[in-house]
Design a binder for these strands. Structure first.
Length: 698
DNA sequence: CAGCCTCGAGTTCT
DNA sequence: CTCGAGGCTG
C-alpha cells in the first residue's frame, strides 16, 4: 500500500472518530442529536470497516472500542487519589436552617461575608444511583472506579467505557493533564422498565428498581453485558486536577476544593468547566441565595420529582465559592460546606408480620400483608395488598420475610419484592384458605382467573356488608353518614340484609346503635330519604351486578330507559347495547333471573324508591363532542368529579387511562405516570386553565 | 386472532 | 393507581 493512501485512510479514520464523538456528545450529553440514528450508524459502520481493514490503526479510544476487554474474573481494587467523601444529611427545614446558620456564622467570622449578607449556594439534584470516579489523563479516560469505602474502590473501567454518555476523550484543546471526575451512574425509569421487560422475556433476573439495575449492570464481570445496559452518567464534582500551561508544563496540582488556582473559583463555575470538557452535567442545578433560596429549590424539585426521567433521593446544597469551601473544611468524612437534603424515602424495607385474607363485595379473597409499621413516602404504612395468590408466589413472599415496600408517584403502598437472603428459619409460605375466612363457605378459583372467590354469596356477612357500603357510596346512591362501622352493626344485628332494608330504617331505631346520637340518626334518615329518587344509572350501579360498573350502568340506563325494561331484557336485547358482550349480558341476565334479586327490587319500590331518568346533555355545538380526556393529579380549583361533570356537560368523555386515542390529558399537581405516558405518546397536555379555555369558560 | 382500548374491582391513609 | 379481563377493530 502506498504511503499517501495509508495517510488518507488514517485521516478518514480520525475524522470519523471525531465526528462520532461529537454526535455522541450531542445525543447523550446535550440531549439534542444533530443527525438521525441511521446516519450515525452509517458513520459507525464505515469506521468499523476501515478499522477492520487496518487493524494497526485501532486505538483503545476509538468509539468502536467501547467494549474492549474480555470478561474479568474479579475487580481489581483502586486507591482514590483524593478521598471520595460522603455528605451529611438534612431531613427537614430545621436541619437546613442549622446548616445555613453554621455556614453563615463561619464565613462572617472569616470575613468572607458582610454582616447581613446571605450565602451564595449551588443547589443540585441528589441522584439515586452509584457514585463513581473517572480518571482522565491528557484527556483520555484511563480509569473508572466505584466509591467503595471512599479510600479504595473497585476498578470498573471496562464497564464504564461502554457507557455512551461518558466521553472516552475530553473535548477541546486545553485538556488538563489529570482530571478525576466524580459523578453518578444511573438508569432512567424508562430504560429500567424496558430492560426489565427484556430480562423477563429472556427469563433472566428482573431488577427491583433503577438503582439496583444500575448497580447490577456496573458489577458485571463481562463488559459486553454492561454494554447492553442503558446506563447514564452525570458529573457533580472532582478529585485530583492537574492543569498544564501552554507548552505542556504542569502548572498546578489540586487536591482539595478551594486551593488558590483552580480553573474556576466557584462550584458552579467548575461544573460549567466540566461541561465544557464534554462531561454531562445536569442542567437542573441552580445558583441560589440564603436559606430561602435553598428551601425554594427543594420545593421546586420536589414538585417536579415525579416527572424527572430518573430517580433522585433529595437535593444537595454546596457553598458556591471555592475559597469559602476551603475555609469551612471538613468534619470527619463529610465536608462542612455541603449537605444533602433528603426527600422522604419512597422505598423502605420492613417485615411481613402476617398475611391476612379479606373478602370483597364480589367475594374476592384478597391477601393483605400486615407490615411492621414503616415510614415511607411521608406516611406510615402498615398494610399493603398482595392482590392474589399468584402475585404472592411471583414475588416469593413468605410470612416473616423482610420485604421492600414502595410508595411511588401514587398513593397506594406496594410490596415490591422479598429479600430471600434475610428470610428467618421460621418463615412460612402463604397459601389461600380452602374456605371463606368470614362465612366458612367453600372457595373456588375458576380456571384462567387470578382471583379466588367465596361461594357464599349474600349469605356471607363480608359480602353483605361490602355490597351495602358500595350501594351507599358517592357514585351510587350517595347516602352520607352511612359509614363502614354502622353498616357492620346493622348487618351483624340482622336488621339490614339488603339495600332495600335501608329504606325502612327509622331514626328512633338507629339511635339505639353505638356511636349514633339522635341528631346523626335524623341526618342519616334525611340522607336515605334523598336517595329515594336516584338516577336510574346510579341505582343500577348500586345493585352491584358483576361487570356492571359506573360506565356500563350509564350505558344500560340510557339504552333501556327504565328498570323494568332492563329486568325483562333477554340476552339478545342486552347485546345490542354498545360495549356489552356475552359476559356482561349473561351477568345482567343472571342477576335479574335470581328471584332473590327481583324481591329486592320489589322491596325497594315498596319503600318508595323509584329511579328517575337522567337528562341527556343538550345537543347543539358542544365544544368537547367526540373528545376523550384523561384527568391526572390534583387540579387547583376543581375536584376530579367537578372537572368530570364539566367535561361531560360539554359532550366529552372522561377515561381512566391514556392511549393514542386520548384527545387531551388534564394534569394537575403531582401528576403521575399518566402524564409520563401522555408525553411518550405525544398526547396534548392541559392544565386547569387550558381545560377551562376549551370549555369556553375563560 | 392479536393487539389495543376501556372498564371494573380492590386498595391505603389522613 | 394498577391489574386483570371484556369487547372491539384491523
Amino acid at each position: 500500500m502506498k504511503q499517501s493512501e495509508t495517510q488518507s485512510v488514517a485521516q478518514r479514520i480520525d475524522f470519523l472518530r471525531r465526528e462520532i464523538d461529537k454526535h455522541n456528545h450531542h445525543y447523550y450529553v446535550e440531549d439534542a442529536p444533530l443527525i438521525s440514528d441511521a446516519e450515525y450508524d452509517r458513520l459507525m459502520s464505515e469506521l468499523a470497516a476501515l478499522e477492520e481493514a487496518h487493524p494497526d490503526l485501532i486505538t483503545p479510544y476509538s468509539p468502536t472500542q467501547r467494549v474492549g476487554a474480555a470478561p474479568a474474573s474479579a475487580f481489581a481494587s483502586v486507591r482514590h487519589a483524593v478521598l471520595m467523601r460522603s455528605l451529611s444529611n438534612a431531613f427537614d427545614p430545621e436541619d437546613v436552617a442549622a446548616f445555613d446558620k453554621r455556614v453563615t456564622d463561619a464565613l462572617r467570622g472569616a470575613g468572607l461575608l458582610p454582616a447581613g449578607g446571605a450565602v451564595e449556594y449551588m443547589a443540585e439534584l441528589k441522584f439515586d444511583g452509584l457514585a463513581v470516579s473517572l480518571r482522565y489523563e491528557n484527556g483520555l479516560l484511563v480509569q473508572a472506579a466505584t466509591r467503595g469505602d471512599g479510600q479504595t474502590g473497585e476498578d470498573i473501567t471496562a464497564n464504564v467505557r461502554t457507557v455512551r454518555s461518558v466521553p472516552l476523550r475530553l473535548r477541546g484543546d486545553d485538556v488538563p493533564e489529570v482530571l478525576e471526575v466524580r459523578g453518578e451512574m444511573l438508569m432512567t425509569r424508562q430504560d429500567f422498565e424496558r430492560l426489565n421487560e427484556q430480562q423477563q422475556k429472556r427469563r433472566e433476573k428482573v431488577f427491583v428498581n433503577p438503582r439496583n439495575a444500575a448497580a447490577g449492570s456496573l458489577r458485571q464481570l463481562d463488559p459486553r453485558v454492561t454494554a447492553g445496559r442503558p446506563l447514564r452518567f452525570f458529573a457533580y464534582g472532582w478529585g485530583e486536577i492537574r492543569l498544564r500551561r501552554k507548552g505542556g508544563q504542569v502548572d498546578l496540582f489540586q487536591q482539595e476544593a478551594g486551593d488558590a488556582a483552580m480553573p474556576r473559583d466557584t462550584h458552579s463555575g467548575m461544573l460549567e468547566w466540566l461541561a465544557g470538557l464534554g462531561l454531562p452535567v445536569s442542567d437542573l442545578r441552580r445558583s441560589v441565595r440564603g436559606l430561602d433560596g435553598l428551601l425554594a429549590y427543594y420545593e421546586d424539585i420536589g414538585k417536579r420529582r415525579a416527572e424527572l426521567p430518573f430517580e433522585i433521593d433529595g437535593v444537595v446544597y454546596k457553598v458556591d465559592s471555592l475559597a469559602a469551601q476551603n475555609v469551612l473544611g471538613y468534619v470527619a468524612r463529610a465536608p462542612r460546606y455541603a449537605i444533602a437534603h433528603k426527600f422522604p424515602a419512597q422505598e423502605e424495607t420492613t417485615v411481613v408480620l402476617d398475611i391476612d385474607v379479606q373478602v370483597g363485595r364480589t367475594g374476592a379473597l384478597t391477601p393483605v400483608a400486615r407490615l411492621k409499621p414503616v415510614f415511607v413516602g411521608g406516611v406510615t404504612v402498615t398494610n399493603a395488598t398482595l392482590h392474589n395468590e399468584d402475585e404472592v408466589r411471583r414475588k416469593g413472599i413468605y410470612i416473616g420475610d423482610t420485604v421492600i415496600v414502595r410508595r411511588a408517584g401514587d398513593v397506594i403502598p406496594e410490596v415490591v419484592a422479598a429479600i430471600p437472603e434475610l428470610r428467618p428459619d421460621d418463615a412460612r409460605p402463604f397459601s389461600m384458605p380452602q374456605s371463606c375466612p368470614v362465612c366458612g363457605s367453600a372457595v373456588e378459583r375458576l380456571e384462567d382467573e387470578a382471583v379466588t372467590r367465596c361461594t357464599g354469596g349474600l349469605f356471607c356477612a363480608a359480602q353483605r356488608k361490602q355490597s351495602i357500603t358500595h350501594a351507599a357510596g358517592r357514585k351510587a346512591l350517595d347516602i352520607e353518614g352511612l359509614g363502614e362501622k354502622l353498616v357492620d352493626q346493622l348487618v351483624e344485628s340482622g336488621r339490614v340484609k339488603s339495600i332495600a332494608d335501608l329504606f325502612t330504617l327509622t331514626a328512633l331505631e338507629l339511635a339505639a346503635y353505638e356511636r349514633m346520637g339522635r341528631k346523626s340518626a335524623e341526618n342519616l334518615i334525611k340522607a336515605i330519604d334523598q336517595a329515594r329518587k336516584p338516577e336510574l344509572a346510579r341505582l343500577l350501579f348500586a345493585m352491584g351486578i358483576r361487570h356492571v360498573g359506573e360506565t356500563t350502568a350509564r350505558d344500560l340506563a340510557q339504552h333501556f330507559g327504565s328498570l323494568d325494561a332492563i329486568m325483562d331484557a333477554d340476552e339478545e336485547a342486552l347485546l345490542a347495547v354498545r360495549d356489552v358482550g356475552p359476559v356482561v349480558a349473561g351477568s345482567v341476565r343472571r342477576f335479574f333471573s335470581e328471584p332473590h334479586n327481583r324481591e329486592i327490587v320489589a322491596a325497594l319500590r315498596k319503600a318508595g324508591v323509584e329511579p328517575v331518568q337522567e337528562s341527556l346533555p343538550a345537543g347543539g355545538n358542544l365544544p368537547l363532542a367526540g373528545k376523550t380526556l384523561v384527568l391526572t393529579g390534583t387540579l387547583p380549583n376543581w375536584t376530579r368529579d367537578e372537572a368530570t361533570r364539566h367535561i361531560m356537560a360539554a359532550g366529552g368523555k372522561v377515561s381512566g387511562s391514556v392511549s393514542r386515542k386520548t384527545s387531551y390529558v388534564v394534569a394537575g399537581e403531582e401528576a403521575g405516570s399518566k402524564l409520563e405516558k401522555a408525553h411518550s405518546l405525544g398526547v396534548a397536555v392541559l392544565d386547569e386553565d387550558g381545560l377551562k379555555a376549551l370549555l369556553g369558560m375563560k
